[in-house]
Design a protein around this nucleic acid. Structure first.
Lengths: 112, 112
DNA sequence: AGAAGTACGCACCTTGAGGTAAGCTATCGC
DNA sequence: GCGATAGCTTACCTCAAGGTGCGTACTTCT
């Protein structure tokens, strides 16, 4: 989606934070427990390393998740959810419920 | 956003329905009262006629709004919200509230 | 006669998110 | 020495959403 103008409405801001292709999945996984970079990569089959880094960085900038790098060799990085991320997850859940509702509605219409 | 895979989660389905650039605004306006095509065009400065038609059609196909064409000259078409569209508007409002919350959070962080 | 309004359809172009492939630093196993 | 692993970065390419502009059938206003 392409939203630059603040759009008066806060929905645009929310989409800005969650609008990436993998962000909802990341939020969901991290809401269960912290994960390392390579673990997340394995959890989301099909994501490229570039985009994964990108979206994790954006979510960190938005305060949804936090990143801890351990100065070791080989490198180790852990991502975990923040309280703000947790609250977004709740909002997403509401939308998700509507999505399910909508899907059943669609299949019912199809049957008719 | 580009989501083709159903993604197991219903959030993708919801985004599919509301993901267009103008759909949230359309939903909001139509939740107040029905409008004609040209009225909507005036309400959303910057939207092109092509895209407006496109998004209205998609929302109609998703059952969010209904279209009534009067066989008059000059042509007259009225768009109004459906109960399903109304329920989506509620879900959007939740996300929107989070968006506002997030914006205040961001400005607070900036101040620090 | 000419302009403007109504509700579109069609052809073309731009733009940015996401995908692909390679490289990089350093260590461990064979 | 060769490859694998970890967590990235960089350069390039693709593709669909959205924007631009024109055409249309008919009428009413000036």
């Amino acid at each position: 989606m392409r939203r630059k103008e603040p759009d008066s409405c806060g929905f645009a801001a929310a989409l800005q934070a969650i609008g990436g292709k993998w962000k909802t999945s990341l939020l969901w996984e991290l809401h269960l427990r912290p994960y390392r970079f390579a673990e997340l990569r394995r959890l989301l089959p099909g994501v490229s390393e570039k985009v994964l880094t990108q979206q994790l960085r954006q979510m960190e900038a938005d305060g949804l998740i936090s990143r801890r790098a351990y100065d070791e060799v080989p490198p180790r990085v852990e991502y975990s959810i923040t309280p703000l991320g947790f609250s977004l997850n709740d909002a997403v859940t509401v939308m998700s419920a509507w999505g399910k509702h909508h899907e059943t509605w669609k299949s019912q219409r199809k049957a008719a």
